[in-house]
């Protein structure tokens, strides 16, 4: 089935708008077209899964949306703000307040405690240290690590580290959470915990989540799945409809 953009967007507020985003990498003679023109709208409070084979350009797309890298051509708007127009200082502001990042390899500061890691973005945002500590503790409790606030990353398991990273990404109440393969380094069970956490965040707190993954579990919790292949959008599916189809087809697992 095809994705009916007009019908789907009705009554929804656009948070991310990508318009013909292209990215080419050049290394000497060799040119890689990582993204070949992606146009997409993502709405507030949506939970999006980005799927696709390795090397298809998922991470590249994430970096464009998160303002971590700039597209070769095309535009990305977040909250109707054109990312290309922002200077370094404004970009820093955006990363600090509007977007939260969760990486495959956690990227925690290894010398800081869990709490210090979580409060760091708040310090950048100018939150008073006492308030930052209080909110940091709340966030750690939310991800189930309230008792482990004084642990350093090397004293925690992968799943726990990723939960700290998620708590950190939520520090300044971002409207958008970007997760690039958050469960790739985790086993099945802890992966599931992280999924559950993200799902709750989306459904309870209304955080917009874009999540790249190879993990089929994710599909169940997402609103939409975007399939990327070879730098292009292959297809877009709405989970509820897919599930309907699936149940009528007798649950075939094929991609």
């Amino acid at each position: 089935m095809t994705f009916d953009a007009e019908a789907y967007s009705k009554g929804k507020e656009v948070l991310v708008r990508a318009h013909d985003v292209k990215k080419t990498y050049q290394r000497g003679e060799e040119i890689t077209h990582a993204l070949k023109g992606i146009s997409l709208e993502i709405y507030r409070k949506e939970y999006i899964c980005v799927m696709g084979p390795s090397g298809s350009g998922k991470s590249t797309f994430f970096n464009m949306v998160g303002g971590l890298d700039s597209p070769t051509s095309g535009r990305v708007f977040i909250d109707e703000v054109d990312m290309a127009q922002l200077n370094a200082h404004e970009l820093a502001f955006l990363r600090c307040r509007k977007i939260g990042y969760v990486f495959q390899s956690y990227n925690l500061n290894t010398v800081m405690t869990a709490l210090d890691n979580v409060t760091l973005p708040m310090i950048f945002a100018g939150v008073h240290p006492d308030d930052a500590r209080q909110r940091g503790m709340q966030l750690l409790e939310k991800v189930g690590l309230g008792e482990r606030w004084f642990h350093r990353p090397k004293e925690m398991s992968g799943g726990q580290q990723q939960r700290v990273a998620i708590a950190r990404s939520l520090a300044n109440n971002p409207s958008l959470l970007l997760c690039d393969e958050p469960t790739a380094n985790l086993d099945f069970k802890t992966g599931k915990e992280v999924h559950q956490l993200l799902y709750d965040l989306n459904k309870v707190d209304g955080v917009t989540i874009i999540c790249a993954t190879h993990d089929h579990n994710m599909l169940e919790v997402s609103d939409r799945m975007i399939w990327i292949a070879d730098g292009n959008i292959d297809r877009i599916e709405i989970s509820s409809e897919v599930e309907l189809e699936r149940s009528s087809l007798g649950e075939h697992e094929e991609f």
């Binding site: 318009h19 708007f77 909250d79 109707e80 703000v81 054109d82 127009q85 922002l86 200082h89 404004e90 820093a92 502001f93 955006l94 600090c96 010398v111 800081m112 210090d116 310090i123 950048f124 945002a125 100018g126 939150v127």
Partner: peptide, 27 residues
């Protein structure tokens, strides 16, 4: 397409010297 909005960074905190120092020290 909607007119692009401009971002307002007025309320972005300026990090005080002392805060940077305490971060550096703990580092």
């Amino acid at each position: 397409m909607v007119e692009p909005r401009v971002i307002n960074v007025q309320d972005q905190a300026k990090l005080s010297f002392q805060k940077v120092y305490s971060l550096v020290r703990s580092g």
